[in-house]
């Protein structure tokens, strides 16, 4: 770990002032950042501790949604009665992630910004364009069982590891951001960037900007499912996960919001898949068509080829569950 300066900010204004410099990172739970710093995969020169900021609350918005402070822990968010009642897919996704100990530390803002679990990203002995731009991508031609099949580029095939963000993506969440120039809101669907030839730039956050909250729109109702498929029962990242919010009215799908984990460099949402479902009668053939659309551009890299049929089958099972239950 490189030696670094440490500052504890008392409020958001101070955090933004302190966070403005080069090589500066905000730290809250630190569940991912500290590991990466120990390995010197990330080596910030300065950490701004934001845990004293007043961002630890869950409040209701005027429109009937929720405003989740960036410092709300995964444990607290998963246990919130409103979340459990009205946005259950989020609670389930949170509880599918990490371990109890980690969820007690991990925060909402930090979770959105966690880095990929690609083996080669963690290994300074190996080339990785995300860690060291221009060095190459060892995962292609290497072990890529856990890596992405959608949205990849020749430069990077990493996945985003979050469960929470997948549910938020399905729910249509927005991210509240503050910078020295003021506050803004970004749709979560616009928050992440595809790797292209700059896989080291993962989000639209400008240097020094701070996530202050995540906004959930009003309850979508319907049937909500989070299904995570992984290599052991718990404490493993998703190979494929599906978050679904589905409403069936009079035998037809009236609403379908779907997001996927383990498939792409960001919590994956594809409006075309949802459009194909809406207005239709739920059948196996329909779910297959939805999977065809989702996976039309999917590209395996050998070790992860199985994710293509796995995603297809998991999507069908989730849609079956979501539509049967509602019927």
């Amino acid at each position: 770990m490189r030696a670094f300066d440490y500052v504890r900010a008392g409020d958001t204004g101070e955090a933004l002032r302190q966070g403005a410099g080069e090589e500066t990172r905000f730290i809250a739970g630190g569940t991912n950042l500290l590991d990466l710093m120990k390995l010197e995969v990330m080596a910030p020169g300065k950490l701004v501790d934001i845990t004293r900021l007043d961002l630890g609350r869950i409040g209701e918005t005027d429109e009937g949604g929720l405003r989740i402070g960036a410092l709300v822990t995964n444990s607290d968010l998963a246990a919130d009665a409103r979340v459990r009642r009205d946005w259950p897919v989020l609670s389930r996704a949170l509880l599918a992630g990490a371990s109890g100990q980690l969820r007690n530390k991990a925060t909402t803002g930090g979770n959105l910004l966690q880095r990929t679990r690609c083996y080669y990203f963690y290994d300074r002995g190996e080339p990785c364009n995300k860690r060291e731009p221009g060095s190459g991508c060892a995962a292609q031609g290497g072990m890529n069982r856990i890596l992405a099949i959608l949205g990849t580029s020749d430069h990077c095939i990493a996945t985003h590891p979050s469960d929470m963000a997948v549910a938020m993506q399905a729910l249509g969440a927005r991210v509240e951001i503050e910078g020295q120039d003021g506050a803004r809101e970004v749709e979560l669907s616009e928050f992440y960037r595809l790797p292209g030839d700059t896989p080291h730039i993962e989000t639209v956050l400008a240097p020094g900007e701070l996530i202050t909250a995540v906004i959930l729109p009003p309850p979508a109702g319907g049937r909500q499912v989070y299904r995570k498929v992984r290599d052991r029962s718990s404490y493993a990242f998703a190979l494929v996960s599906v978050a679904a919010v589905v409403t069936v009215e009079e035998g037809r799908i009236a609403r379908a919001q779907l997001a996927f984990g383990g498939l792409g460099p960001m919590p994956w949402r594809d409006a075309r898949v949802e459009q194909a479902l809406i207005g239709e009668t739920p059948t196996k053939a329909l779910f297959d068509r939805a999977a065809d659309i989702l996976l039309a551009d999917a590209k395996g890299h050998g070790g992860n080829d199985f994710k293509i049929p796995l995603a297809r089958r998991t999507l069908a099972a989730v849609l079956t569950q979501a539509t049967e239950a509602a019927a």
């Binding site: 963690y122 060892a138 290497g142 072990m143 856990i146 290599d231 718990s234």
Partner: peptide
């Protein structure tokens, strides 16, 4: 669950931590 993966190009252990080398957890 358990398998150490070796990179085909130089034999190095790819998943050499307890997050990616999967020993059974309680739920297994």
């Amino acid at each position: 669950t358990e398998a150490l993966e070796h990179d085909p190009r130089d034999g190095h252990m790819v998943n050499r931590d307890l997050a990616e080398y999967h020993v059974p957890v309680n739920l297994d």
